[in-house]
């Protein structure tokens, strides 16, 4: 008679969800999508990776049932192009976080506020913003923003690895 398979509690936790937001046709506004594309092959089996080119309301549907969500979007706060911001909105707001080209019906900040109002915010939400420079029609990132994409990719990998090493998200 074989032993029952040992259960690994870590395995039963839902995978973290990574969502890259943006508009593929608007130069630096695609930075969130580029991070998602870079992370997908590197995180196979370790995280779910989604790209979202829709308006912010789609986020409420995308992250339904997810406990730990990381969202990457382009942002304009006045900092130098390519600057990376990392925020955990928790109960607070996302100051100045407005979608760059606003083809999303709601911005990321508005979607977070709406989700909070409706009680459907993920328990743990991390937002990475990459300061945009050029958001005109175009399919190329500006060099500082391409650098920001690499930085966010590396930081998310490190963040998830560190949390896996301690057996899940720190406040689990």
């Amino acid at each position: 008679m074989s032993e029952p398979a040992p259960t690994n509690p870590a395995r039963t936790l839902p995978l973290p969800l990574i969502i890259g937001l943006g508009n593929d046709q608007r130069s630096d506004d695609r930075s969130g999508l580029e991070v998602a594309r870079a992370l997908r092959p590197l995180l196979a089996g370790k995280a779910r990776v989604e790209e979202c080119e829709s308006e912010g309301i789609a986020l409420l549907e995308l992250w339904r049932g997810s406990d730990h969500v990381l969202v990457i979007d382009a942002v304009r706060s006045g900092a130098a192009p390519g600057t990376v911001h990392r925020l955990e909105p928790g109960d607070g707001f996302l100051p100045g976080f407005r979608s760059v080209t606003s083809t999303h019906g709601l911005s990321l900040a508005e979607a977070v506020a709406l989700a909070r109002g409706l009680g459907c915010l993920p328990r743990r939400l991390v937002v990475y913003g990459i300061e945009a420079d050029d958001v005109r029609m175009g399919a190329e990132l500006t060099p500082p923003v391409a650098h920001g994409v690499q930085e966010v990719t590396d930081r998310i990998l490190a963040e998830l690895e560190a949390e896996a090493a301690v057996g899940g998200s720190p406040d689990a």
Binding site: I57, E61, E110, A113, L114, G117, L118
Partner: peptide, 20 residues
């Protein structure tokens, strides 16, 4: 905006989201 409306009319906003 809808965010403020959702506080008083959560069911209406949820209905809209469900249909969408």
């Amino acid at each position: 905006d809808a965010i403020h409306m959702a506080k008083d009319y959560p069911d209406a906003v949820k209905l809209g989201l469900a249909l969408k």
